[in-house]
């Protein structure tokens, strides 16, 4: 299939882009990496009147460091994040997750902003950013706002981004001393779309895990912070988390449904398997020190 027709504009500045967004609103689509948007157009799953190509906005492509955080421009490519020394040092969770995304040819083009704006419930980066407590900068003509990652995702393929806004930047708090990250997913094919995955980040000591954020993807409509599970884990010695309590908490936290790749039952089972893998990794990571 070929896309339905649309107009195309490529603003030279953010101001221009925001003005276009203000003018076209719901009748526009933001083109970043295009690795999901263009296929949707090609299959006529989506159409729009005006495509606003933000790839010319160099201000949105930098990866920068400040005292407490690293800031990723919305059009930072997966490949740039994967190979960034700043990311490797300060947000290793992102570096763990990116090799699981698509082909290298996709990673050469796909952007972090595009991934979070698409809000695919099976996507890796939204869950990682929730686990890291990232904040997103959303700009509209004349103003900006910050929103926590966890509040940005509002449903399957739905976000808090308004029709006149553009996601411009993602701020990720720097890894603090003693904090560990873990990332695991299970896919039908080794390099395929995950049926269930988890991004976890927390302070790991030889006794326990604290300040844990454990976020599942592929189970719910949005990245799902497993609050009950976290509380079970935080409440126990790291080597002695009671399995039955863990499983019961996961059953409360997650609400998987059936789809063509796996049943709700399977996804819940995988969430349990992955939780154990995260704990095992935390235990062994601590043992290495």
């Amino acid at each position: 299939m070929k896309p339905a027709p649309f107009d195309y504009v490529k603003p030279a500045s953010l101001e221009e882009a925001l003005e276009l967004r203000r003018r076209h609103g719901a009748e526009s689509a933001i083109l970043a990496g295009g690795q999901s948007l263009v296929p949707d157009f090609n299959q006529r799953l989506r159409s729009t009147e005006t495509v606003i190509d933000i790839n010319g906005l160099s201000a949105l492509s930098s990866i920068e460091e400040s005292q407490d955080m690293i800031s990723l421009g919305a059009i930072s490519r997966y490949r740039e994040i994967e190979t960034s020394a700043l990311v490797a040092e300060h947000a290793p969770l992102l570096k763990m997750a990116i090799p699981e995304i698509g082909s290298p040819a996709i990673r050469n083009r796909g952007t972090i902003g595009g991934s979070v704006s698409m809000a695919d419930p099976g996507a890796e980066l939204p869950a990682c950013l929730c686990a890291l407590g990232a904040n997103f900068e959303l700009a509209r003509a004349g103003s900006k706002r910050m929103i926590a990652a966890q509040n940005f995702f509002t449903g399957r393929y739905e976000t808090a981004l308004d029709n006149d806004e553009i996601l411009t930047r993602i701020d990720v708090p720097k890894n603090r001393v003693g904090f560990r990250s873990a990332f695991h997913e299970i896919a039908r094919r080794k390099t395929g779309y995950a049926m269930c995955g988890v991004a976890a980040h927390g302070k790991v000591t030889h006794q326990s895990v604290q300040n844990l954020k454990m976020v599942f993807f592929g189970t719910d409509d949005t990245p799902m912070l497993a609050v009950n599970t976290i509380s079970v884990i935080e409440g126990c010695a790291i080597n002695d988390v009671p399995p039955a309590e863990l499983d019961a908490a996961l059953s409360e936290d997650l609400h998987p449904s059936d789809d063509t790749h796996g049943s709700a039952k399977l996804r819940m089972h995988y969430a349990k398997v992955l939780t154990r893998r995260v704990l095992a990794q935390f235990v062994s990571a601590h043992g290495e020190e």
């Binding site: 039908r188 094919r189 080794k190 390099t191 395929g192 063509t260 790749h261």
Partner: peptide, 9 residues
């Protein structure tokens, strides 16, 4: 959504 075997499978 129709899964073909890839090189890693």
């Amino acid at each position: 959504n129709y899964l073909l075997p890839t090189m890693t499978d």
